[in-house]
Design a protein around this nucleic acid. Structure first.
Length: 811
DNA sequence: TCTTGTGAATTTTTT
DNA sequence: ATTCACAAGA
C-alpha cells in the first residue's frame, strides 16, 4: 500500500472501511495488555480520555491504538495527527508504530504542537500576510527584539523590564490575547499598562514586518488562521480524522483551542461557538450528516505529572475534558510496569499530599525491590561525590551507564556534578543546559542563513552587520535604517546601495562586500532561476557565508583560546547541515532553519549510550532509567524558593518531585547537601519537606540529615580537599557501612541542622573537630552564617571551616 | 569604533 | 562564580 501517496485531502470520506466496529486481527496488538489498556486501544468513539499514571504503558497503548486504526482499515495514515511533547517522543512513536505495522505507517503526522503548526503555517502563510520563508524566533530572538522596543518606548521608566515584558506577552499569547483585546479589558488609565500595550503591539508589528513568528505565535496564529479562514480550517478537519494528543495535562489554552478547532464538525464555520462554555452547540446535530462529523479525539495525560503551569499549561484542560467533550469515554491506567513497589509507595505517599487531585494509586506486581537510598552530603561537591561513587558501584554491579540518570531542579546544579564526574572519569551527558544552538557563534551563523532565506528579517541582518567586525557601528547602522525607511525598502535591500548611504568609502566597501556575499549565497541556496537547489546547497551556502564574510578568518586570527572551540562548533554546524541534506534530499534552507529552531533539549538523543544522563527534573519527564538519582532535595531548591509565592507553586513542585521518583525502574537515590554555594556564597540548606512525606521504612539513609554531624568517621570533602585514592569510594567494593547510629533514626529529619551560629570564636582559640582533631584558630573571617574559621590542625594542617555547621567544640 | 574596567544581577522549570 | 551591561578611555 502506498500510503505516502494518499491524497492529502480525502473529502468527506472517513477512510477505507469506515464504521468498522469490532476490532479484528488485533490479537497481536492486544497481546500482553491488561483490560483497561485493551479498552484504550480498542474503544471507538468521538472522544477518549486515557488517564495514564506514570509508567502505566501509555506509549504502548497509544502506538497500538494507532496501529489498530491503520491495520483495521479504519483510517489512512494521512488521516492521523498525533501530537507529542518533544520531537524525540514523536520519532519514537513513529518508530514503534512502524514496528507494529510496517511501512503502512508512512504519511502520518506525528509531531509536536509547534512542528505541526509550522507545517500548516508554511502552507497557508500567504493567506494572511506572511511568506513561506518566515523565520521562527526563539525566546532569545524575541527577547532581543523586546529589549529594543522596551528601550525605544522607555519602558524602564515605567518599571517594565525586557524579561518581564516578554513573559507577560507570552502568557497573553498563550491565552490567545493580542494587544488590542488585552487593551480592551486592561486598565488603560494606568500609564504602565498603556506603555505595555504599546510595546506589545509594536512587537507584533515588528514580527509581522520581519515575516516572523515567535514560539507562541506558532500556535496562536494557527488558531487565528483557522478561525479567520474557516475554509482553510475545513481542509484540515477533513484531513485529520483521528487526533491523538499525548501529555495533555501540559497543554495551554492556545493548544487546547487548536485541538478544539480541529475537532469541530466540518463546515461549522460560524466562528467560535460558545467555546468559553466548553460545549459545542450547533443548529443541526452533526451526527445527522456523517460527512460533517468531527474527528475523533484521544487525549492521554496524568494531572499528577503536570509541571508546566508556569508556562501556561492549564490542568483544567484535562480535568474538564469530560465537560468539554460530552460523552467522552474515560479509561484509567493504574498498573505500573516500570518501578518496584518501594519506589511506587514513595511516589504515592508524596503525591497524596496534594489535596486537589483525583485519587489514583499506582501499583505493581513485581515486588518491593531494593530500598530507596538516602544521603546527605556536607556540600554539593560531597553530594556529587556520593553520586559518582554510587554510579561506579552500580556499574561494577552490571548496570550500564546509559541506564543511570541524575536529576536536579536547576541547571546550575549540574556544574558540581560535572566536576566530580570528570575527575572520576565517568562518562556523562548533559541533556539541555547551555544549548548548542544558543551559542553566539551558532546564532551568528544561523542569522546569516536567515538573512539569505528571509531578507525581511531585519533582526537577523542587523545581527550579522558587524560580525565579524567590519567597522560598522551604531552610526552606520542607523544610517542604513534611515535610508531604508526613506526609500521604502527593506534593511537588507538598503545594503545593496552602499554608495547612497552617505558613509565613508571604507564602510561603503564593507557593506557592498557583505551584500555581495549574501547575494552569492542566495544564488546557491535559492537560485533565482527557480531551479531546485541541490541537497548540498545549505551546507555549501553556509560554508561560503562563513568563509567570504571573513567570519572564519576572524576566529582563526584571534588569540582568544575560546575561539578555537567556536571554530569547532561551526564545523559541527556545517556537519549538521550535511547530515540534514542526507536525511532530507529535498530540504531547503527554510526547512533546515525550521528543524534547528524546533529542536529541544530532550530531543538531543544522539547516543546517550554509554553515558550517564544528567538533566533537570523537567527534562526527565517521559523518560525512565534503571537507577535514578534525585539530587538537591532541599528546601528552597525542591520546592524551589520562588514557587512559594506562586499559587499552586508548592504543589507543582511536589509533582515535579513525583515525576523524578517515578522515572526509576529499580533503584532510587535521594540526596541533598547541608550547604550549597550559590551566587558565589555558601548558604546552609535544610532537608526538603518532601522527604518527610516518604514513609521512613522505605528509605535507607546511608547518611541521614539527622546524624550527619554527629559521628561516623567520615571526612567532609567539602572542607577537605585531599584527593581520593582510586578504588576507595566511600562505600567502595559494595561495602555499605554497617551503620550504627544511622539505623536508630533512619528517617528522622530534624527541623534544623547543627547550628554553631552563636559560638564565640576568635583568633587564638583552640578547638576540637570531630574528624580533624585539635587545632589552633588563626583567624575568623566573614559574618553571621558565613563566618569562616581558619584553623591549623595538628594532624592534618590548615583548613577553612564554616563555623555555623562544622562539627567543632571550643576547648 | 573598539577595548577595558567596574559594577550589577543572576539561577526555576521550556516548546 | 560568572556573565553581562554600561561607561570611560584609546
Amino acid at each position: 500500500m502506498t500510503d505516502a501517496s494518499t491524497p492529502l485531502i480525502v473529502g468527506g470520506d472517513r477512510g477505507p472501511q469506515s464504521g468498522a466496529d469490532a476490532p479484528r486481527a488485533d490479537d497481536d496488538l492486544l497481546a500482553g495488555l491488561n483490560p483497561p489498556q485493551r479498552e484504550a486501544v480498542t474503544y471507538r468513539g468521538p472522544a477518549l480520555l486515557i488517564v495514564a499514571g506514570a509508567g502505566s504503558g501509555k506509549t504502548s497503548v497509544l502506538t497500538r491504538r494507532i496501529a489498530s486504526l491503520l491495520r483495521g482499515g479504519e483510517a489512512w495514515p494521512s488521516q492521523i495527527l498525533a501530537i507529542t511533547f518533544t520531537n524525540k517522543a514523536a520519532g519514537e512513536m513513529r518508530e514503534r508504530v512502524r514496528q507494529l505495522i510496517g511501512d503502512r505507517a508512512e504519511g502520518m503526522w506525528i509531531s509536536t504542537f509547534h512542528s505541526a503548526c509550522v507545517r500548516i503555517l508554511r502552507r497557508e502563510a500567504q493567506q494572511f500576510g506572511f511568506t513561506k520563508a518566515f523565520t521562527i524566533y526563539d525566546s532569545g530572538d524575541s527577547r532581543a527584539l523586546i529589549k529594543r522596543l522596551v528601550k525605544e518606548h522607555e519602558g524602564d521608566a515605567f518599571g517594565l523590564t525586557p524579561a518581564g515584558t516578554q513573559s507577560r506577552i507570552s502568557k497573553l499569547k498563550n491565552e490567545l490575547a493580542d494587544a488590542e483585546s488585552y487593551a480592551r479589558q486592561a486598565n488603560m488609565s494606568d500609564p504602565v499598562e498603556r506603555v505595555f500595550v504599546e510595546i506589545f503591539s509594536a512587537y507584533q508589528r515588528a514580527l509581522q514586518r520581519a515575516n516572523a513568528f515567535d514560539f507562541d505565535d506558532l500556535i496562536g496564529q494557527t488558531v487565528y488562521l483557522f478561525r479567520a479562514f474557516p475554509h482553510v480550517a475545513d481542509v484540515y478537519r477533513r484531513r485529520f480524522r483521528h487526533i491523538l494528543v499525548d501529555e495533555y495535562q501540559d497543554t495551554n489554552h492556545a493548544q487546547y483551542a487548536l485541538i478544539h478547532e480541529l475537532t469541530r464538525p466540518i463546515g461549522s464555520d460560524a466562528g467560535p461557538i460558545a467555546s468559553s462554555g466548553g460545549m459545542m452547540i450547533f443548529d443541526a446535530d452533526p451526527a445527522d450528516d456523517p460527512s460533517k462529523a468531527p474527528a475523533s479525539l484521544t487525549v492521554v495525560g496524568d494531572s499528577d505529572q503536570s509541571i508546566y503551569a508556569f508556562r501556561g499549561a492549564d490542568i483544567r484542560n484535562i480535568s474538564e475534558f469530560e465537560r468539554d467533550y460530552p460523552g467522552a469515554k474515560v479509561v484509567l491506567l493504574e498498573q505500573n510496569y516500570r518501578s518496584t513497589q518501594n519506589i511506587l509507595s514513595a511516589a504515592n505517599a508524596v503525591i497524596s499530599n496534594n489535596f486537589d487531585r483525583k485519587e489514583k494509586r499506582l501499583w505493581t506486581d513485581v515486588g518491593a525491590g531494593d530500598p530507596i537510598i538516602g544521603f546527605t552530603g556536607y556540600s554539593q561537591h560531597d553530594e556529587a561525590q556520593f553520586v559518582a561513587d554510587e554510579v561506579e558501584a552500580l556499574r561494577k554491579g552490571g548496570v550500564d551507564y546509559s541506564q543511570m540518570a541524575v536529576f536536579y531542579r536547576t541547571n546550575s546544579q549540574s556544574r558540581a556534578l560535572e566536576e566530580i564526574f570528570i575527575r572520576s572519569a565517568i562518562p556523562y551527558k548533559i541533556m539541555g543546559g547551555t544549548k548548542f544552538y544558543e551559542r553566539a557563534e551558532i546564532k551568528d551563523a544561523m542569522a546569516y542563513l536567515v538573512a539569505v532565506a528571509n531578507p525581511a528579517d531585519e533582526m537577523a541582518v542587523r545581527r550579522i552587520l558587524n560580525r565579524p567586525r567590519r567597522g560598522i557601528g551604531d552610526v552606520t547602522e542607523t544610517a542604513i535604517a534611515r535610508y531604508a525607511a526613506d526609500e521604502q525598502i527593506t534593511f537588507r535591500d538598503a545594503l545593496a546601495n552602499a554608495s547612497a548611504l552617505g558613509v565613508g568609502p571604507k564602510l561603503q566597501q564593507a557593506i557592498a562586500h557583505l551584500d555581495a556575499v549574501l547575494a552569492e549565497a542566495r544564488e546557491i541556496m535559492l537560485p533565482a532561476s527557480g531551479e531546485l537547489a541541490p541537497p548540498t546547497a545549505v551546507a555549501d551556502g553556509l560554508t561560503l557565508l562563513l568563509n567570504k564574510s571573513g567570519y572564519f578568518d576572524a576566529l582563526r586570527a584571534s588569540r582568544d583560546p575560546q575561539d578555537e572551540a567556536r571554530l569547532e562548533n561551526l564545523d559541527e554546524l556545517i556537519a549538521v547541515a550535511r547530515e540534514f541534506a542526507r536525511n532530507n534530499p529535498e530540504g531547503t534552507v527554510v526547512d533546515f532553519l525550521t528543524e534547528v529552531a524546533l529542536v529541544s533539549d530532550a530531543d538531543d538523543l544522539e547516543d546517550a549510550s554509554g553515558s550517564v544522563s544528567l538533566m533537570t527534573l523537567h527534562t526527565a519527564k517521559g523518560l525512565e532509567y534503571d537507577a535514578v538519582f534525585v539530587t538537591g532535595v532541599e528546601e528552597d531548591l525542591l520546592p524551589h524558593r520562588i514557587s512559594a509565592g506562586e499559587p499552586g507553586g508548592p504543589q507543582e513542585e511536589r509533582r515535579l518531585f513525583y515525576v523524578g521518583i517515578t522515572r526509576a525502574r529499580k533503584r532510587l537515590y535521594l540526596s541533598l547537601a547541608m550547604t550549597r554555594a550559590q551566587f558565589g556564597e555558601v548558604s546552609v540548606a535544610m532537608p526538603s519537606r518532601f522527604l518527610q512525606e516518604i514513609p521512613a521504612d522505605l528509605v535507607d539513609w546511608r547518611q541521614s540529615p539527622g546524624d550527619v554531624n554527629s559521628r561516623g568517621g567520615m571526612q567532609s570533602r567539602a572542607l577537605n580537599a585531599r584527593p581520593r585514592r582510586p578504588g576507595q569510594g566511600r562505600y567502595g567494593d559494595d561495602l555499605v557501612p554497617k551503620s550504627s547510629a544511622i539505623d536508630k533514626f533512619p528517617n528522622r529529619i530534624p527541623a534544623k541542622v547543627r547550628d554553631n551560629g552563636d559560638m564565640e570564636l576568635a583568633a587564638g582559640d583552640r578547638i576540637r573537630h570531630d574528624d580533624f582533631g585539635e587545632g589552633h584558630v588563626d583567624a575568623i573571617t566573614g559574618e553571621g552564617a558565613k563566618r569562616v574559621a581558619h584553623v591549623r590542625f595538628e594532624k592534618v594542617g590548615a583548613k577553612k571551616l564554616l563555623v555555623k555547621i562544622a562539627p567543632i567544640t571550643k576547648l
